Amino acid sequence: MKIIYIKLFIRVSIAIGFLSAVADRFGMWPKEKSAWGNWSSFIEYTKLLNPWIPENFINFTGVVATAAEIVLAIFLLIGFKTSLSGKLSGFLILIFGVAMTITTGIKAPLDYSVFSAAAAGFGLSLINEKYLEIDMLFDKKNSD
């Protein structure tokens, strides 16, 4: 299989994972399929994973995480700054996995392949070949 297809698969997989989680916290998944189902439940989970963050910053933390997931998902889907988006996705997912491990134990992040997803983000940042990426337009302008 060509590396460009693997790169596209990684980009789309991480992006869809982010967008699915965002949709869940906004109640867009059926109740029986959702992890949180609403913003309040998501914020409670954010509080659980971040006990060191003061109570009055928890909602802000949830907003920042959600905004980061939305922006990174869009960037990955369109292929904008793909290497940087991959690294940032890897770090965001790794932070999530470490927080899960510290507060709830190692089983959940392993069961949900959190560290594998983080590794995929870091791996994505190392693939230089471009395919179906808006970055290709910028590379052409710079090479002309």
Rank of each mutant, 00 (worst) to 15 (best):
M1R: 06
I4H: 09
Y5C: 01
I6W: 00
K7F: 02
L8V: 04
L8W: 05
L8Y: 07
F9Q: 00
F9H: 00
F9R: 00
I10V: 09
R11K: 04
R11N: 01
V12C: 03
I14C: 10
I14D: 08
A15P: 08
A15L: 05
I16V: 10
I16W: 07
I16Y: 07
G17S: 03
F18Q: 01
L19S: 02
L19N: 00
L19G: 00
S20L: 12
S20E: 02
S20Q: 06
D24V: 06
D24L: 05
M28R: 13
M28P: 00
P30N: 10
P30S: 12
K31E: 13
S34L: 04
S34R: 03
A35F: 13
W36L: 08
G37Y: 02
S41L: 05
S41T: 14
I43E: 07
I43V: 14
K47A: 13
L48K: 13
L49K: 10
W52T: 15
I53A: 00
I53M: 02
P54K: 13
P54I: 15
P54W: 13
F57K: 11
F57D: 05
I58L: 07
N59A: 11
N59I: 12
F60W: 14
T61Q: 15
T61P: 10
T61F: 15
T61E: 15
G62D: 08
A65M: 13
A65L: 14
T66Y: 13
T66S: 15
A68W: 01
E69R: 09
I70Q: 05
L72W: 11
L72F: 12
A73R: 11
I74A: 15
F75T: 03
F75M: 14
L77Q: 04
L77T: 03
L77I: 06
F80R: 11
F80T: 00
K81N: 12
K81D: 05
L84I: 15
L84Y: 10
L84M: 14
L84Q: 13
S85M: 04
S85R: 04
K87T: 15
G90K: 09
L92G: 01
F96A: 11
G97T: 08
V98F: 09
V98A: 09
A99T: 14
I102R: 06
T103Q: 13
G105V: 06
I106K: 14
P109G: 07
L110V: 12
L110N: 04
D111A: 14
Y112M: 12
Y112W: 10
V114A: 02
V114D: 01
V114G: 00
V114I: 07
S116V: 14
A117M: 10
G121C: 10
G123L: 15
L124S: 04
L124C: 05
I127H: 00
E129W: 05
K130D: 03
E133S: 12
D135V: 01
D135P: 06
M136E: 11
M136G: 01
F138H: 06
F138L: 09
D139M: 10
D139T: 15
D139V: 15
S143H: 08
D144M: 07
D144I: 10
